[in-house]
């Protein structure tokens, strides 16, 4: 009974918190849910690695670490860039650079939300569709040159984990091309 009460309280607080944060801020809602989507996608990709029998057991650790690094890089890039754009766009309304004399205070708040939403959409497209694929291609090319197999590029959508360096153990035991292909074939870098 006590558990039920506390769970119900947690759920109520969650609903109340969601309302307070997002009911008037579409831009923040789009930013946060997209970032959560990225994180969940990385989590499911990582789970996929652990249960992928086609990948050698030793190499799963390497791929899972890479998947975590991929997720961290993508979310950090997306959140950092898009958040800055939203903040900057909202600031333009605050400073009067974007505005309208025809609007009252409520109207200006709505304009601010609209401008923020445009910035949020632009940031999402810019980071997801331009920055990430370029980084991904650079890494795929690097793998291709290392392995000497052209097809790796075509089937490797994994981003180089620039923020997390490889450990010496991973460098000593590079992943085999068969395992790499089997892993990427199962839809790595999926987006939710």
């Amino acid at each position: 009974m006590a558990l039920q009460t506390s769970l119900s309280k947690i759920f109520n607080n969650l609903k109340s918190g969601v309302f307070t944060r997002y009911a008037d801020n579409t831009d923040k809602f789009l930013l946060d849910t997209a970032a959560i989507g990225w994180m969940l996608a990385s989590l499911s990709n990582m789970t996929g690695v652990f249960f992928n029998k086609k990948v050698d057991k030793k190499e799963r650790r390497y791929l899972a670490a890479q998947e975590i690094a991929d997720g961290v890089t993508n979310v950090a890039l997306f959140y950092g860039i898009t958040y800055s754009l939203i903040k900057g766009a909202r600031g333009l309304v605050d400073k009067g650079i974007i505005g309208s004399k025809a609007l009252d205070e409520k109207g200006t708040m709505m304009l601010k939300n609209g401008v923020g939403t445009i910035a949020s959409l632009f940031g999402a497209v810019f980071t997801n569709n331009l920055i990430t694929p370029v980084v991904r291609n650079k890494f795929a090319t690097f793998v291709q040159k290392k392995t000497g197999k052209n097809d790796v590029y075509a089937q490797s959508p994994i981003v180089k984990p620039s923020s997390i360096p490889y450990t010496p153990i991973q460098q000593k035991t590079p992943i085999s091309i068969q395992s790499y292909m089997a892993f990427t074939k199962n839809g790595g870098n999926m987006r939710i």
Binding site: T26, G96, G99, S100, A102, L111, N113, L121
Partner: peptide, 21 residues
Amino acid sequence: SLSNLSSRAAKYIQDVDKVNS
């Protein structure tokens, strides 16, 4: 003139927040 948008332009921008996920 971004600092003084017409009411119609402002309305267009305000309506962008209808975009959901």
